[in-house]
């Protein structure tokens, strides 16, 4: 076949495809490099306690990152996840408190309420994007301040605490040594991966992000797909909110501050294109781990939090710059 021959010949001439290799494995390599570097500097970095710590921290925003992967695959973005996390957690905790605080299955009430709030808010985002044609950036920018404001309104800005052991187990417990939030993250990531990779719906998410007009002309309900990804992300933000409140032992008005940045960074560093249509959950998990390791390692190296922000910002921009560069190379024969 002519095409195959040309491809083989070109590959032979170019030799090792460095950009292609880095596109696939660069982030993973960088992650491993960081781990080696940090553990060389401070042996405690690789202690079981610290690893558990990092993984639990990563899990909270990693869960949202799975949903954000879907959103960014459609070419959108969700800036409201941090505020929504706080609002959902506060809502759940508020109901638990109103019902007496520590009662059997209080965790279940909180879990259901938090997830319901997240799902409903996500539905609102999605409908506003599709029905009124407001860009996702604006809708969720609005959502970001609205949900934060609602969080403050619920309990006048104060925290709600006093959860029972069953509630706190979800944040601090473990099964066979694996922290519960990490287990939840693993389940969510696996489910997110399977849906994206093996279902019809997953294909539709890619299609809508890759070329919305072609998707419409292929008979897809583009608005349905677009709205659905915000619902998924909202649900997961609610779930993460519940886990965070269980971990901290209280629902706080400032919870999840700036999480949107971390979540979006995880997705983008993980190779999902902001232009939509390219990427996946696997990359997001690596991206979330990278950020978690970076933040934790910098703390252990006694780098001031001020510098941490600078470093993370620079890494995000570099990741996107590389994505754009790789895209321009891919586009060689469009």
């Amino acid at each position: 076949m002519a095409n195959t021959m040309v491809t083989a010949k070109e590959a032979g001439r170019r030799g090792f495809d460095f950009v292609g290799f880095m596109e696939k494995y660069g982030v993973l390599l960088f992650l491993i490099l960081l781990i080696i570097l940090f553990s060389a500097y401070n042996p405690r970095f690789l202690s079981a306690r610290n690893i558990t710590n990092i993984l639990t921290e990563v899990s909270i925003y990693g869960i949202i990152g799975v949903g954000m992967t879907y959103v960014i695959l459609t070419g959108g973005v969700d800036l409201a996840v941090g505020s929504l996390l706080a609002f959902a957690a506060m809502g759940g905790a508020y109901v638990v408190q109103a019902l007496g605080g520590d009662f059997v299955l209080s965790w279940l009430v909180a879990l259901l309420i938090s997830c319901a709030i997240g799902t409903a808010a996500g539905y609102l985002h999605g409908k506003t994007v599709t029905k009124f044609n407001v860009p996702p950036f604006i809708v969720t920018l609005g959502g970001m301040t609205v949900w934060r404001g609602m969080t403050l309104i619920i309990n006048d800005g104060g925290p709600i605490s006093g959860f029972d052991a069953g509630y706190r187990w979800w944040g601090r417990g473990d099964i066979l040594g694996i922290p519960v939030p990490v287990l939840v993250f693993m389940i969510v990531a696996l489910a997110g991966y399977i849906v994206l990779r093996y279902t019809r719906y997953g294909r539709q998410v890619y299609a809508v992000g890759g070329n919305p007009e072609a998707a419409r002309l292929s008979g897809l309900n583009v608005n349905y797909v677009l709205a659905s990804v915000y619902v998924i992300t909202g649900f997961l933000a609610g779930l993460a909110g519940f886990l965070l409140s269980a971990r901290l032992g209280s629902a706080e008005a400032v919870a999840g501050m700036n999480y949107e940045l971390r979540v979006i960074a995880s997705v983008v560093i993980g190779g999902t294109s902001l232009f939509g249509g390219i990427g996946g959950v696997g990359g997001t998990v690596i991206g979330a781990l990278l950020i978690g390791v970076l933040i934790n390692g910098l703390v252990m190296m006694n780098v001031s939090p001020y510098y941490q922000q600078v470093i993370i910002g620079v890494i995000i921009v570099l990741a996107v710059a590389f994505d754009t560069y790789a895209k321009s190379r891919r586009g060689g024969r469009k």
Partner: peptide, 27 residues
């Protein structure tokens, strides 16, 4: 028509996936 960065597979079967499923949702 084309999803240029997507595979031939994804491009060719997208509208027919409804007839290519198992367990209702899976391809």
């Amino acid at each position: 028509a084309c999803f240029l960065v997507h595979s031939i597979r994804q491009n060719m079967t997208l509208p027919s996936l409804g007839r290519l499923t198992k367990w209702k949702y899976f391809i």
